[in-house]
Computed example of a mutant assay.
Amino acid sequence: MAESTCSEELCKGMATLTVHAGQSPEVWNTGAAVVPPITLSTTYRLQEPSGASDSYVYNRIGNPTRSCFEAALAAVEKAKYGFVFSSGMATIFTITQLLESGDHIVSFDSIYGGTVLLLKTVAAKLKTEITFIPVTDDPEIFKQAIKPNTKMVLIESPNNPLLNIVDIRRIADTVHQFKDVFVIIDSTFASPACQRPLELGVDLVMHSVSKYINGHTDVIMGGVVTNRDDLYEKIKFLQKVTGAIPSPFDCYVANRGLKTLPLRMAKHQHNAMAISKYLEFNSKIEEVLYLGLPSHPQHELAKKQMFAFGGMIALKIKGGKTEAVNFMNNLKLIISAASLGSIESLIEHP
């Protein structure tokens, strides 16, 4: 729930930003320690009985280690505010709590399966109406889908798992023609090193921090950033009252992972491009979908709105599921496992 405090000069380079944003030794009463410490205390001595003037009162409401990471996450997205939660699913659930009973959500029909399940079950039980549309940036489709009670449009780009992308600015401009509708994007597959959707007009950007941002397969966490003061106040309240917060240790680990994000993403992209080029001409591969390949149908759009193409590859194996599973079972260095964005190479059959 911290506001980024980086100077304009510091914010120019992402690699510099990931090391310094939110990390100033002066904010810690620890003899100016260079590395932010892990603050484990669940409660804090109050300067006055109400605690109204205290920066920290109780760990669920605020924690110095968490504030440090939230400020850093906001900074790399060029956002004013950042929040982290105990998982990516806790993040998207919290976002749905911005809505009232009877409100309407528009979302893509091809996004992360966990998000679809949450919308169809938990959100639906809270009397929230959901319309799923094809992955598109066609303004007319959005205009037809939006109703008088629509309050949220949820998109994913690149999408999970087939790496379709959409013109983010075009969608944001279309949706903002309607009053009181906000746009949220799941940008997990890209990371802040590949795109910054707030600069393209969306209102909220969420990430599964477990993936590229942490990058080491050892933290479960989610995060969301925004530049809107009204959404900041609402999410800050929801974070406090729902309590779906990550531990100080997890915040410390994710903060450390964030520092190497630009370096890791550069290597992810280098390796993904090499593998994609090799597989593109393999006789047993039907199609390679990688945003960095000129053969990707949305390669030009990717170049327009992304800084880099990331490390995600989708493959279509000739034959069927049997051939795909056989391919996976014969890999030597790539591990068959769920998740993505880590220093290991992982593969799964969605």
Score class of each variant (00 low, 15 high):
2 A>Q: 08
2 A>Y: 06
8 E>P: 06
8 E>K: 15
14 M>E: 04
25 P>D: 06
33 A>V: 14
33 A>K: 14
39 T>Q: 13
41 S>W: 08
47 Q>G: 14
47 Q>C: 14
49 P>M: 12
49 P>L: 14
52 A>S: 12
54 D>H: 07
54 D>W: 08
59 N>I: 13
62 G>T: 06
63 N>S: 08
66 R>Y: 09
66 R>Q: 11
76 V>P: 00
76 V>L: 05
79 A>Y: 08
80 K>D: 11
81 Y>C: 03
87 S>I: 10
87 S>V: 10
95 I>R: 00
97 Q>P: 03
112 Y>V: 11
115 T>E: 10
116 V>P: 02
117 L>W: 15
118 L>G: 07
121 T>E: 13
132 F>M: 07
132 F>C: 03
134 P>H: 06
137 D>W: 05
138 D>T: 09
138 D>E: 09
140 E>V: 12
141 I>A: 09
143 K>P: 02
146 I>G: 01
147 K>M: 12
148 P>D: 15
150 T>N: 04
154 L>R: 01
157 S>K: 04
163 L>E: 07
165 I>P: 02
167 D>E: 11
174 T>M: 02
175 V>Q: 00
177 Q>L: 12
177 Q>D: 10
178 F>V: 12
187 S>T: 10
190 A>Q: 03
196 R>W: 07
197 P>Y: 06
199 E>I: 07
200 L>E: 07
201 G>I: 06
201 G>D: 04
201 G>S: 04
205 V>A: 02
208 S>C: 11
209 V>N: 01
211 K>D: 11
216 H>A: 12
221 M>P: 02
222 G>R: 01
224 V>M: 07
224 V>S: 02
226 T>D: 01
227 N>F: 06
231 L>G: 04
232 Y>V: 06
232 Y>A: 07
234 K>V: 09
234 K>S: 12
236 K>T: 12
237 F>C: 14
238 L>Y: 10
240 K>D: 15
247 S>E: 03
255 N>E: 04
262 P>F: 03
262 P>D: 01
264 R>E: 00
265 M>F: 01
276 S>Y: 00
278 Y>H: 14
284 K>E: 14
287 E>N: 11
288 V>A: 03
290 Y>F: 09
290 Y>A: 00
291 L>V: 05
293 L>E: 04
293 L>F: 05
295 S>R: 09
295 S>A: 13
301 L>R: 04
302 A>D: 05
304 K>T: 10
312 M>E: 12
317 I>W: 04
318 K>A: 08
319 G>W: 06
322 T>I: 15
322 T>K: 15
323 E>Y: 05
328 M>P: 01
336 S>V: 14
340 L>T: 06
340 L>A: 11
344 E>C: 08
346 L>S: 03
346 L>V: 11
348 E>G: 09
349 H>N: 14
350 P>I: 09
